[in-house]
Design a binder for these strands. Structure first.
Lengths: 245, 245
DNA sequence: TCGGGACTTTGATTTAGATCAAACAAGATT
DNA sequence: AATCTTGTTTGATCTAAATCAAAGTCCCGA
């Protein structure tokens, strides 16, 4: 069994509440949809599909038909330049929605690859739009989800344009921590699903800088890393590092 | 008359076609809305409001009620850290929609300031959502607009994480060029509405680097800059600079 | 017409992080 | 167990851009 396939311990009760079936489900239930509406939503969600580590969910250039809700697992989204140079635009985990960039011109703009074995629900976009026009609460929720993607991307822009290496890595770890915590996983102890190179790529740094910065954060007593096993010792001090640009 | 207030020469025929009244108008007309639907859209758009250079359209933290469509003019969007350090997240021009980040949690996340005298239409978001649920073509178009914002932000992320100073500036100029061209302005000859410092801020560089890079691009014969008057001599070669990361 | 302020250019120096290089782990494969 | 592969750490050196510094330009208001 590889490290990558070791399942993380989950607080099941929590997970169930925040991600009962599939993203869309999670998305609409808290919106106070009626039972009938919930059934309508369930109907358009296609069967879950399994992806093994390394599988592509879709590729840049693929024509756009559906959004994808991650039921569980972990994905990276990236652009591949002609020269083979990869540029990672984001990491996505359970409860998150993939493919919203493709609405703009009916083509996916990026590759999406599973970084661990994962389960995904396909949501045909035409069906979703049909449903959102009949269920106002669902429409509003969908707008919020797109808006959150915008906020997240703009946050990452600021990270890339203003923060130093140490701050970027701290922000990255805190972001993972927060998202894992929201899903019922431990916010302070988790496995990284990606290599140092992929982290560096995403943060606009090299793998060597990531490695050195991990070493430094450990020396400061802020965290422990062994391979991909991360333990954050002091979330507050980590957050404190982000304030001063 | 300051340089900032010199009006740029416009191809009026073009402008009219692509931006007849207000952004939303421009947005829905090409979607094949019926005349009746178009009238409905017009009804929810509040009177145009004028903003002088330096005026705030809204501030970070303001509660979210409306999106804003720029009828004409130029705005910058920015975050202001406690220490007073500004971080510019984007520049917006005629025909673009502001405030979509605020849908996520009913608060504006950034400040928006006019960089020249501008005219803006306010679009109450509740009204817009009401309309989008009754006009499917409008809903779809709105989703495309949000999606385009996501694509643009992700493109800027890649710029910030992978490109060198010269490529960033070239990409910035080409982006302005393309957007101005789409609005009927000259894509090769335009005024910059922002300072070198603001460009640098947005591109993750210092004003000195922007200045030196302008000088260098001029020496290469790719462009001419006098103060804020930019002339691009070779769009193809500028585009060629972006390929190699 | 002069002087002040905002912005820009250019030069000298410094530095954070990139790049180059080598050794080292931990699994996976034989 | 021995070897290979993939990913990681650490060290030495280099470099693009930051920072520090000074002078120049344009605009504006008195």
């Amino acid at each position: 069994m590889t490290i990558q396939s070791i399942p993380i311990k989950v607080n099941l009760a929590n997970l169930k509440a925040s991600c009962s079936a599939c993203t869309l489900h999670e998305l609409c239930l808290p919106m106070g949809l009626s039972l009938d509406d919930t059934e309508l939503v369930d109907k358009i969600i296609n069967n879950r599909r399994k992806f093994l580590r390394g599988d592509y969910l879709y590729r840049a250039g693929d024509s756009f038909r559906s959004l994808y809700a991650i039921r569980n697992g972990f994905f990276k989204m990236s652009e591949l330049a002609e020269d083979g140079c990869e540029k990672i635009t984001g990491f996505y985990m359970a409860g998150e929605l993939l493919g919203m960039d493709a609405i703009s011109d009916d083509r996916h703009h990026y590759h999406v690859v599973a970084l661990e074995d994962s389960m995904v629900c396909e949501i045909p976009f035409a069906d979703l739009e049909h449903l959102t026009s009949t269920i106002p609460a669902l429409q509003h929720h969908f707008h919020k989800i797109m808006s959150r993607e915008i906020v997240a991307d703009q946050g990452h822009m600021l990270l890339l344009s203003k923060m130093k290496a140490e701050q970027r890595l701290a922000a990255f770890l805190l972001n993972l921590s927060q998202r894992l915590g929201a899903r019922g996983y431990s916010p302070t102890h988790f496995y990284l699903r990606m290599t140092r190179e992929e982290i560096g790529n995403y943060l606009g740094l090299t793998l060597e800088t990531i490695s050195r910065t991990f070493t430094h954060l450990q020396q400061e007593g802020l965290m422990t890393v062994h391979h991909r096993d991360v333990e954050l010792h002091d979330l507050l001090r980590l957050k404190g590092m982000l304030n001063h640009y």
